[in-house]
Amino acid sequence: MVSHKENAALAQQLFQEAVDRYGIPQGALTLHQDRGSPMIARSYLDLMGELGVTCSHSRPRVSNDNPFSESQFKTSKYQPDYPGRFESIVHARQWYRAYVDWYNLQHPHSGRAGFTPEQVFTGRYREIAEVRQRALDDSFEAHPERFLRGRPKVAMPPASVSINPVQPDDDDPAPYSVVNFPTLAAASGSATKSTLIFNDLSESG
């Protein structure tokens, strides 16, 4: 979302649309974000509770608690055609629409073992990995002497990624059912074990 302003109402609109678009089930999502005013507004946290989304927040005054989001900002700003300054909000939306399509659909990422975000998100990476593995197997059969470590194996994306993971506690039968910092969701007892993703609206303008 690219907007002239940032507020809790826009944040609610964005995540309601995302949950509806991708069919996110209740209790399946943990959202990591900074502590900007829209992200801690009661109306926003109430909606997250209604959607079954557990909220995790960066620590106060810790700029690197959302490294994936910050890394994505750097990727966008280091693009060869990044304009530096946008002429208008229409210009910004046009540029970011093309950038997001490229980032999701074409950009192989080292942290995802050379797969694109779309391939990992949809599960298509498994089919692609099979094609890559066949190519490696053919190369190995033709020239095994080139592979000093034996038969090569296709690297796969990590099964899970977390930010400031909660350490296991022997006294807690479900140690990962809590978030790092108290939120309305956690306080109400609705925090659940879930996949950790990130989002950051601090530069949505």
Rank of each mutant, 00 (worst) to 15 (best):
T54Q: 10
N66M: 11
A8G: 08
S190M: 13
D81I: 07
E87T: 13
E6S: 14
L148T: 11
A92Y: 00
R134M: 11
Y78H: 09
G205T: 13
D137I: 00
P108N: 08
S177I: 05
I163L: 15
W95P: 01
R21M: 11
R134I: 07
D138R: 13
S43A: 15
G36V: 05
D81C: 08
Y78P: 00
A9N: 13
K77R: 14
T122W: 05
F198T: 14
P80N: 05
L148V: 11
Q12W: 04
P117S: 05
L31P: 03
S188T: 12
R132Q: 14
S162H: 10
D172K: 03
R35D: 03
S76T: 08
F140C: 06
S37A: 12
V161Y: 04
G52C: 02
P25L: 10
F115P: 00
N180W: 08
S194D: 00
I128M: 03
R42Y: 10
R59H: 13
A174P: 02
I40C: 06
L47N: 00
D101I: 05
V131H: 09
F121P: 02
I89K: 05
K193C: 11
Q16S: 13
S69C: 15
P157M: 02
T54M: 13
G123L: 01
E145V: 06
I40A: 04
I163A: 08
M48K: 07
H32E: 04
E118G: 02
L105S: 09
G150A: 03
D34K: 02
A187P: 02
Y103V: 06
L196T: 11
F140V: 07
S177C: 12
S202Q: 00
R85V: 12
G27A: 07
S139H: 04
R59I: 09
D172P: 02
A18C: 10
S194Y: 00
I128H: 03
A155K: 13
R134E: 15
F115R: 00
T30W: 04
S43P: 02
Y22F: 15
H4W: 09
M1H: 12
R132E: 12
G36K: 04
S177Y: 06
Y96D: 02
M1K: 10
A113N: 01
A155W: 05
E6R: 15
P38E: 04
Y44R: 06
S202N: 00
S76H: 10
V19T: 03
L136C: 07
V166G: 01
V166T: 12
